[in-house]
Design a protein around this nucleic acid. Sequence first.
DNA 1: AGGCCTCGAGTTCA
DNA 2: CTCGAGGCCT
Length: 672
Amino acid sequence: MTKSVDIKRLDQLRETVATHRNKYHDDDAPEISDQAYDALLSELQQLEERLEGQVTTASTVGGEANVAFSKVTHKVRQWSFDNVFTQEELSEWDTRVKRLITEADYDASEVSYVVEHKIDGLKLVIEYEKGKLVRTSTRGNGQVGENVTHTGKTISSLPHQLAYPIDMVCVGEVWLSEKEFSRINTAREKVGEPLFANPRNAAAGTLRQLNPDVAASRKLSLTVYDLDLLENLPDTIQPPTSQWEELQLLTQLGLPTNKYSKLCPSIKDVQTFYEHWTEKRNNQPYGIDGAVIKLNLLSLQRVLGYTAKAPRFGVAYKFPAEETTTVVEDIQLQVGRTGVITPVAHLQSVLIDGSTVSRATLHNEDNITRLDVRVGDTVILRKAGDIIPEILSVIESLRPSKTQSYRFPKTVSECGGDGSIERVPGEAAYRCVSKDSGALHRHRLSYFVSKGALNVDGVGPRIIDVLLEHGLISHYSDLFTLTAGDLKDLPGFKLKAAENVVTAIDAAKTTPLHCLLVGLSIENIGTENARLLADTFGSVEVLQKATVQDMAGVYGVGEVVAQSVANWFADAANQKNLADLLPYLTIEKPNQKSTTQTLTGKTFVLTGSLEQFTRDEAKSAIQSLGGKVSSSVSKKTDFVVVGSEPGSKAAEAQRLEVTILTEAAFSTLVAR
DNA sequence: AGGCCTCGAGTTCA
DNA sequence: CTCGAGGCCT
């Protein structure tokens, strides 16, 4: 079934894309990221293809050369490669390359690839005559570019004179390091000039400066990656027969090439390169937006030739977009364990950074107001190096007519009682007024059996829901009277599964005091505060009798936390639930303190995964020796234990010059 | 007031 | 795992 084309949407898209294209090309001042722009452009192109391939000027890629600079007709046409995004697409490309070579009666076993970083900068065409640098120009539309010799010459790594009197056209990528970019922007901010949106636009702006002195003061970098034309080579140098030899010759001639470029015998090595740099892409001074792959042998490149749009002998293997656009289909409200209402945007599913995203939190009412997100809006969605997708902004020019600002409802049916909700003055969140509702109850029971609390293996929210629905439980204590017979006839249960659940619940009866406290859903009581209270008071009975003053006297516990605990214990329903529950439980004596408290007063932070320990094992190893484990790195942290695939904390540790321990060093430290 | 830390929530994947 | 909000200490 072909979907009909929404003409209104098409018009809006055409206009929006055109607007942003102008901002980008003519003003060097884009308002939205390239990735978001690409997402809009590809939606527009798809719509237009459905409209019988009728292409308007709005979606033609590339920019017209700016009139302020003289034009340069390139001696060799400047192509850009087609993109692939997945391993499948890459391997299809590899297959096609080899098929075409075989069909042309060449030997496909000679295929190897050169792979390199796709640097996020702008292309520079560089011309030498008789060994002398004569011209640099931008790519422009591929055939005609702008003459930027005056600024190109200020790039310090670009030699003005070669050792041999050769004629040569080569191309490279001009970029600005992250450091230099922020230095420039800081300076511009001071004098009130508009800021550059990103390093690439700053590089473009610099290259298109009329005044070469300004360009020279901003340290442009250059990475040369291709040779287009080569004449009058001295006899002592063999003309290159492959991409790899071209790179070596360029290096030999003193041009800045990239040391990470690699010659890959097979497409599998290309994939390895890509995966390696997907992870490490943030460790370079320049931005990397993928890998460029070229057939190595020039003879085979010639065999493959060009399509109307791009060379067949190379391809750009792009990293997954971290920013894209999508449409908000609905805004729904969720009730959390403590009664906080969280609005969530339900989105048209979209692939971003390798995973499909269909929901994004909107946090709270203020955030919705700030963004003015409405149902039906097209939004820019970002998924940064981390995990959580975030709505950055609304593209207002794509808003359907007759929409209204989102109005936060006065009631939420899940909240129980009359469903009313309230926003506490000074807080961002709405909460359920009723403290006792089905939704809260469900969340608390789920939390009770979860990992940080009683840790009932294999029982999560799904099973709790089923048990609630069938009236098998309503309070914590009910869990402990369940039998396999009760469970085995429930939907999704077989006898074996029922037995497993009962066994797991049974095993959870023996628990340390702090885990029980965590499980009770007392406000402000998480793992740390629960541990403080458990260590100080030792038993439920003693804690229950403690006054607010007693608790607030504990180092690390203040008024607020103490009051939460006191309030909880003062509630009659809570008292009854707890009294019903306690007979089933055996509270473990706190861990035997190890005799050698070698780590007393030392604070640790763990990042990445260790081989010999789970996270929890490492944690309790440290704690049993008297050490503390914290979750964020600060100046007060003594050691950061870095496992494989560490997160940002490893870098933070380096920045703050905190001692870093490898797994090996760590395990000797805690051994015995 | 500021720095450090915990809580609590959201997310997706193997 | 990461972030923002907010608690606790100095």
